[in-house]
């Protein structure tokens, strides 16, 4: 094209011919990447495959346990069979321990984590929204967050005795700072343009805070709770292992004293199932209340 020269000069460029690099002349494959279902990155797999894998995820470990136990490779005092564990569960149920202990543990988590949630949401939002509040509170929460909560137990026992208070306080201390910092981060991701739009629609700062920032971070708050409630479920057992009248942790300590491994297994199973149920219900809450944030 003869036109290319004047075009270049229009933009003040002089045409250059770079020294051409030497390319390999070896024949290149046109096959590209091989198709895969199982190893697809960041993509869905067919529903039946997903269901099958999910069933395997539970069935394989359970089957292995059942196999090892039934082959009598290990003394059943150390590794009870699934049937023995089921019997232990039944025993705990009929004795009334199962219900009482579970209720006690759940109550502690509810009160401790509930308080942490009540405190962390306003503080987290304030820290995310106002750089001033953030400068004031971020350093201290950043430091305290890294103090392992169980290390507070001796102090809590000295201050609060052996009742419910120290256990609830432990859960509170162990989760409130994580909650605060995660809520704060969520607020920082609210698009600035959304706030500016609010101002140009005649909104005041207060309205932007309560009617734009707050609803925007609700899904992140639910997610934060879902992640951190697992911590509180850990901490309640830790607290009960140390000192308690009842609770699933206490039941495990008692079972150890009498060498009832089947009861320990039963309690572990219950702990896992309840934790998983908590997770699922918070996911359900998210789906029900935040359709806009869920696919």
């Amino acid at each position: 094209m003869g036109a290319s020269v004047p075009v270049c000069s229009t933009f003040g460029l002089t045409p250059v011919t770079p020294a051409s690099p030497s390319f390999s002349t070896a024949p290149r494959s046109t096959q590209g990447m091989k198709p895969s279902v199982f190893w697809r990155l960041a993509d869905d797999i067919p529903k039946p495959m997903s269901t099958a894998l999910m069933v395997l995820s539970i069935a394989v470990p359970f089957g292995l346990w059942w196999l090892v136990a039934s082959l009598d490779l290990v003394n059943d005092k150390f590794l009870p069979s699934p049937i023995q564990v089921a019997q232990a569960l039944g025993r705990l149920w009929t004795d009334g321990f199962l219900l009482g202990d579970t209720a006690a543990s759940i109550m502690r988590v509810t009160v401790g984590f509930g308080l942490a949630a009540l405190v962390s949401v306003p503080i987290g939002i304030a820290m995310g929204a106002f750089a001033s509040v953030r400068s004031l509170l971020e350093p201290i929460s950043g430091v305290v967050r890294y103090m392992p909560a169980p290390a507070f137990i001796p102090l809590l026992v000295i201050y609060l005795g052996l009742g419910e208070a120290p256990k609830i306080a432990l859960i509170f201390i162990g989760t409130v700072f994580f909650n605060i910092l995660m809520v704060m981060d969520a607020v920082k991701f609210v698009p600035k343009a959304l706030l500016e739009t609010t101002y140009t629609l005649g909104g005041q700062r207060r309205q932007a805070l309560f009617q734009v920032i707050a609803p925007y971070v609700v899904p992140n708050i639910i997610d934060t709770f879902r992640i951190n409630i697992a911590t509180s479920w850990n901490l309640v057992v830790v607290a009960e292992l140390v000192a308690a009248e009842n609770g699933l942790g206490k039941r495990i300590v008692l079972a150890q004293k009498f060498f009832n491994t089947d009861e320990i297994f039963a309690c572990l199973l219950i702990l896992g199932v309840i934790g998983f149920a908590l997770d699922l219900s918070l996911r359900g809450l998210m789906k029900a209340t935040c359709k806009w944030a869920v696919d």
Binding site: A193, L194, E196, Y216, W292
Partner: peptide
């Protein structure tokens, strides 16, 4: 009116 629409997603 912003280029990024800025609708409130919820």
């Amino acid at each position: 009116i912003f280029q990024s629409y800025t609708l409130y997603p919820w």
